[in-house]
Every structure is written in C-alpha cells, then in structure tokens.
C-alpha cells in the first residue's frame, strides 16, 4: 500500500526537479518578494512617506516588516495556488483518473501533496528574503525571521483547508482553472499585509478575523516591533491559528470526500 511517506517523497522530488531543471524559474521565484517590496515602497513613497506607513501600521522596523510581509503574501499565494490548482493541473494533463486510482484516498493525496508543496514554498520564500533582512537590519532581525517562519508554517495549515475547498469547487464546476481562485487575492486583501486592516470597509474588517494570513501578518508585525515579542500575544495568535486549522481542514476534507465520490460517479470533465 502506498504510504504517506511515498506521496511526500514523490512531491518533494517533483518540487526539487522543477527547480533544478528550470534555473530561470527558480531565480524568478527568489526575486518575487523583492519585487513586491520594491513596488509597494516605490509606489507608496512616490505620493507619501515611509514614516507615515510606519505610523499607520504601528511598527518599529518597516524594512523588516515589508520584507517579511512580502514573504508572507508570496507564500500564502503559493499555498493557495498549489493546493487549489493541483486537481485542475492533473485534469489538464489527463492524469487525474490515474491519481484517483492510487491506493490512498484522493483527499489524502490532495492534502499530503499540497502540504509538502506548501511547506517547501513557505521555506523557499522566507529563505529568499533572509539575506536582505540580515544585511539591512542586522543578524538579530534574521533571527526574528525564524519566529515568522514558525507562524508561516502554522498559518499554512488552515490555508490548506481553504485551498482544498477551492480546488474541489473547480473540479466539480468542470472549469479550466480554479473558479474560486479569487480567494487568493481576497485573503491577501483581508490580511492587511501592506495597510492596516482598519482601512478596510466594516464588513471586510469583520471578515478579516476569520483569515489565517491576518494572524501571520500580526506575528510579522510583532517581530518587526519587539526584540522579544510578548508571550501572551504569541500564544493568542497560535491558539487562533490552531482553531482555524481545525475548522477549515475539517471542511476541506469533508468537501474532498464528497468531490471524490462525485468525480468517480460522473467522471472527470
């Protein structure tokens, strides 16, 4: 029987060879968080100032925050893209029926392969900004990144549940791409990476409290403000992320079980 380790190993190999065989793609992936920082800082400061941003966000170190925030944003985009897109990707290639025939259940395959891809992407995105953060803000800021990495890993778990729901909806809707991949920028909008959440309209501000990335961004703000972040706040963020992980993964897995049944019944279109 295919063990979970086999699936994880296969997904790690795919990730490794995609990057190894495509150096340009790897270089571009490393560059994305830098581009995001460049755009936000250049565009913002063309009409305003970094001081104003610092004050509005309530942070002490805007450079560390902007880099960390960009890595969080890029990583959450990757998590959703990969996890929600894996089903449609197999559909495109015509390999979905084969994947569904592997001894492990389809939802298990979806969850495990997405988890591996996502964790690799998260680590990759954070590693890409580490040199800039250490050079610009010092070694201590580099250590603060470890705290952010920890929260990014934890924050990936609830995101996976959301992404599974998106991927399943696309497969069931027989569309060519993820029909609800608007979730991706929506999560980014609600998480308030580049602006305080209080700038959002009321209804979106309320919705933001159900978004895992918002809490990862809060953790990045803590790291960019305190040398040693307050333990109670760290625990609060951890607690909320765990609750959201349980909630969204329960929903995602239930949806995946239903999707498996439906796809087996009516075939892949």
């Amino acid at each position: 029987m295919t063990s979970l380790w086999n699936i994880m190993q296969a997904e790690l190999r795919v990730q490794y060879y995609w990057l190894k065989n495509n150096k340009v793609m790897m270089a571009m992936s490393l560059l994305w968080p830098y581009l995001m920082v460049f755009i936000m800082v250049s565009f913002g400061t063309a009409f305003g100032s970094l001081e104003e941003f610092k004050e509005k966000m309530g942070i002490a170190s805007p450079i560390l925050y902007l880099f960390a925030g960009s890595a969080v944003a890029t990583a959450s985009l990757s998590v959703i893209d990969n996890a929600a897109g894996i089903g449609t990707w197999h559909k495109w290639l015509g390999t979905l029926p084969y994947v569904m025939l592997v001894p492990r259940r389809f939802p298990v395959y979806l969850l495990i392969s997405s988890l591996v891809t996502s964790l690799v992407q998260v680590a990759f995105n954070l590693a890409s900004i580490a040199p800039a953060v250490i050079v610009l803000e010092g070694f201590h800021a580099g250590l603060q990144l470890l705290l952010i990495l920890f929260f990014m890993f934890i924050g990936t778990l609830p995101l996976l549940g959301i992404a599974l729901l998106g991927g399943i909806a696309s497969l069931l809707a027989s569309e060519e791409s993820d029909v609800i991949n608007f979730l991706n920028p929506l999560l980014l909008l609600l998480s308030g990476v580049f602006y305080p959440v209080k700038m959002l309209p009321y209804i979106l501000r309320v919705a933001a409290y159900y978004i895992p990335t918002k809490y990862v961004v809060d953790a990045a703000k803590l790291a960019a403000t305190y040398t040693t972040p307050p333990g109670s706040t760290v625990m609060y963020i951890l607690y909320i992320l765990t609750l959201l992980a349980l909630l969204y993964n329960a929903l995602g897995l239930t949806g995946a079980v239903y999707a498996e049944k439906e796809l087996r019944r009516r075939g892949v279109r």
């Binding site: 400061t45 305003g48 920028p185």
Partner: peptide, 15 residues
C-alpha cells in the same frame, strides 16, 4: 481585488 490591494497599499503611505 489586486487593484484594491495596491490602491490601499499606496494610500497607507499618505496622510
């Protein structure tokens, strides 16, 4: 949504 993110991001730098 992406336009909104960039618009809010730019406004966050201005009074």
């Amino acid at each position: 949504l992406y336009m909104a993110i960039y618009m809010l991001g730019a406004l966050a730098f201005s009074p």
